Amino acid sequence: SKGEELFTGVVPILVELDGDVNGHKFSVSGEGEGDATYGKLTLKFICTTGKLPVPWPTLVTTLSYGVQCFSRYPDHMKQHDFFKSAMPEGYVQERTIFFKDDGNYKTRAEVKFEGDTLVNRIELKGIDFKEDGNILGHKLEYNYNSHNVYIMADKQKNGIKVNFKIRHNIEDGSVQLADHYQQNTPIGDGPVLLPDNHYLSTQSALSKDPNEKRDHMVLLEFVTAAGITHGMDELYK
């Protein structure tokens, strides 16, 4: 796709999030870079409003799984890469995230190029959380598991539907599940690639910047598309 050509090198990323969870309002600002050749993201996020009212790991899918245009699609799968094909005009990404036995996040993001920078601007609203639950009670460990993110075409809306389940580790050794339902639709009216069913395999590492006084998260992530085999004719070339 034409959009794919915008991702040949390292691309700067800007992320802006405004959130409200159970009436606790907050903002997060992030910057870093993405390299789609390797499916690599390096980002640093800062809570610009003081202390973040929710655990950082609960925002990873909104912040970095928010820029799935940096996923590495192998050559034989490039015609299934909706995310890059929607660029530079970008796409709207909407999600509902259900935390098992707790509340939910609803998010709406616009992901697009502004100049040479890929920008992810998000509004997040969280409701029905227990004040002493795993999320508002800050009981999650500061780490992140690997996940597969399942993608299918949504021809009606000229976009994709995505769903997956995140496993958050809790300090007591148990797990907090979070079910994600995602819809992506193009902002522009140019042609986009509608994929066959496949998935993104994601690995994320969270860390801290020892010199950063503000509440923050440093993230390194690798994302690769998989799940579609080479056609038989490919094998015999």
Rank of each mutant, 00 (worst) to 15 (best):
Y150C: 07
G137R: 11
N104Y: 15
A109G: 12
Y199H: 07
K139R: 13
E31D: 11
L219Q: 01
F98I: 07
K51G: 03
L17R: 00
M87A: 06
Q156H: 10
D35G: 02
N104H: 15
A109S: 15
Q156L: 10
F129Y: 03
D196G: 12
E234V: 10
D128V: 03
K161R: 11
N143Y: 06
P88H: 09
P191L: 12
E110K: 10
K78T: 09
L206M: 10
H230Y: 15
H180N: 04
L6Q: 08
M232L: 11
R108G: 01
I160L: 10
L52R: 02
K165E: 13
L177P: 07
T37A: 12
K139M: 10
Y105F: 15
V21A: 02
N148D: 10
N134I: 05
T96A: 11
N134S: 09
G23A: 02
P57A: 08
M232A: 14
D101A: 06
E221G: 01
K40R: 10
H76N: 12
S71N: 02
Q79R: 13
H180Q: 09
S71G: 13
I135F: 03
V15D: 01
L194M: 14
N184D: 07
G231D: 14
K125M: 08
I228D: 10
V15I: 13
D128N: 09
E234D: 04
E94K: 08
I135M: 03
N145D: 12
K208E: 05
F98L: 11
D101H: 04
V54E: 01
D35Y: 02
I151V: 11
P74H: 15
N211T: 14
I46L: 09
E123G: 05
H80R: 05
D35V: 05
H230L: 09
K161Q: 06
L220Q: 14
A225S: 05
Y142S: 06
K44R: 06
F98C: 13
G103S: 04
V111E: 00
I13L: 10
G9R: 09
E4A: 10
L14V: 14
K40M: 11
F83S: 02
S207C: 11
L206P: 03
K155R: 13
E89K: 04
N120H: 02
R121C: 04
E171A: 08
N163D: 12
K106R: 12
T202S: 03
H80Q: 10
T8I: 10
